[in-house]
Design a protein around this nucleic acid. Structure first.
Lengths: 291, 291
DNA sequence: ACAATAGTGTCTATGAGACAATATTCG
DNA sequence: CGAATATTGTCTCATAGACACTATTGT
């Protein structure tokens, strides 16, 4: 590589296998609301490592054939059985990459994690190399660290498990007292995804991605209450949502009496054209998190 | 992989080269302030591809030997010549991953980009496989897409004489009309890093990472004005900074007359212990950006 | 009738931003 | 002295949040 040569010459002689391999996967934290609880898509691994355990859906990036975004969309479609049209209603964004050398016992695997917000979807189905797929309540698989205890991390990815992790670690190791842990470091990825989700609905209209084409303000409020884990004041929330330009726009229609216990018929709205909320919705009790 | 076997058996027989290779690199968007202008660390490539062109510092992740964070820190240290102690004052966070199959002509390369905020540093030095390294003014290498595409602003930092503003596309392909482009898709990565930086100093105290151990409120204001490209009201900014708990704390001392043109000696402050600013500092003219 | 919910009105505390005012130091 | 800057004061407006109130529907 030292001798001077033209770029075509160089490329012709380039050997893509001349270095130690690092594998690249995508993993998806797909969130949805079912029965007013936040659920995450998980697969039961069909083979080693971590055979039989729950993990985030994901897989290897097909070298030279797809971008990371495409790979994430593909993995999500495989596990949810959605066609391209339904996938269009799903919000998908990159979450972050995880690359500790020991996070996969097979070899050094760098995982690019994605975060998805999905409206109510049919039951999951197992993908090619999974023994099963299902939507799991997030608080069953991950200690729902309320925002207050979770101090905002200045990005800390390099810790190795096992060494001393037991007691005082800043990030409680993925599997808390309740529920089964996720394979690999997927518990950490899920925790990061949840925190990202909590933050993102503050300043973007993405909470609407958890709902159908049209929705009531109360349904939207339920999204916030579920994701944030905090009850919100119905009246103030209502006024606030309508006051943010571009957040929602009215369809003419009204609710057709779902399973409510009385009350007037709520008006229906659809997502507006804003991509950012201004002013943003504020999570309650942020002062406690400040320092 | 279908036959049932124990995990040790599986691992013993696992061949890390059994798949098409995808390479993993880290690239660093390292920002600093020099003479009240925002600069980015760049290297001149010593060999193909893009030999002789400017690029972000970066390199391949050493398989099995380092995490992504460690690789980013290593690359940054190699190019800046900083020791571990000085590096400790640099803020380094993951920015995002870029993996279009055609972004590197050699093969499919996934790059994990990092964003660094550095205080004034000595001149850069060329790393192992670079022909040179230097701090480049960001507006010379990247069309400074102001956050707003509209709204005339009294203070324009990014215009170079003779250059004309951006065209139409949402993301002008890495090389804009003015300035030398960066190799690969590094222009896109830089643009994303700048936007992240602008957003991050809103709600974190990281603007202090551009300054030394102690600083005046005016110096801090200059950081905001330079990164945001907007003049700020000195009086309101002053009061705001002091009112946010944990943002800055007073050292007893006062400024020792740098190169000012008169005025009282400003008091000196150091970074406080907050990790998030509450309430956040708001960028002016956000309404124009909302939709 | 009663309970539950949708939606609106009102009041208060807080913070952002526009100025203005004062003090300090350099040329 | 005059210009530039640091710091503080004051006023106004927008908004978040507490709370109350009315209207509408199911049981």
């Amino acid at each position: 590589m030292e001798a001077q040569q033209t770029e075509p010459e160089f490329l012709a002689g380039y050997d893509p296998r001349a270095f130690d391999p690092v594998a690249v996967t995508v993993d998806v934290v797909a969130l949805t609301l079912r029965a007013d609880r936040l659920h995450v898509l998980a697969v039961r691994r069909g083979g080693p490592p971590y055979a039989g355990e729950w993990a985030l859906p994901g897989g290897f990036v097909q070298a030279g054939r797809e971008s990371l975004d495409e790979a994430a969309g593909r993995e999500l479609a495989e596990e949810t059985g959605l066609d391209a049209a339904s996938l269009g209603r799903v919000h998908l964004e990159q979450l972050g990459s995880y690359g500790r050398p020991d996070r996969d016992p097979r070899m050094h695997v760098v995982s690019v994690a994605y975060l998805a917000f999905a409206p109510g979807l049919p039951d999951a189905r197992a993908g090619s190399d999974a023994a099963g797929a299902d939507w799991l309540p997030v608080d069953a698989v991950c200690s729902v660290r309320q925002p207050e205890t979770a101090s905002p991390r200045p990005f800390e990815q390099g810790r190795r498990p096992g060494a001393h992790g037991g007691g005082a670690g800043r990030r409680p190791r993925s599997s808390p007292p309740d529920g089964a842990p996720l394979a690999f470091d997927h518990g950490d990825i899920l925790a990061d995804g949840l925190e990202r989700a909590r933050a993102k609905i503050e300043y973007t209209p993405l909470a609407t991605a958890f709902l159908g084409e049209s929705f009531t303000i109360s349904e939207l409020r339920t999204v916030y209450e579920t994701v944030w884990g905090t009850p919100l004041h119905a009246g103030n929330f209502h006024r606030k949502v309508l006051s943010v330009p571009g957040f929602v726009e009215s369809t003419g229609a009204s609710d057709t009496r779902p399973g409510s216990r009385g009350g007037p018929r709520a008006r229906l709205y659809r997502a507006g054209d804003a991509t950012l909320l201004h002013p943003a919705l504020l999570r309650p009790d942020r002062e406690a998190t400040v320092r």
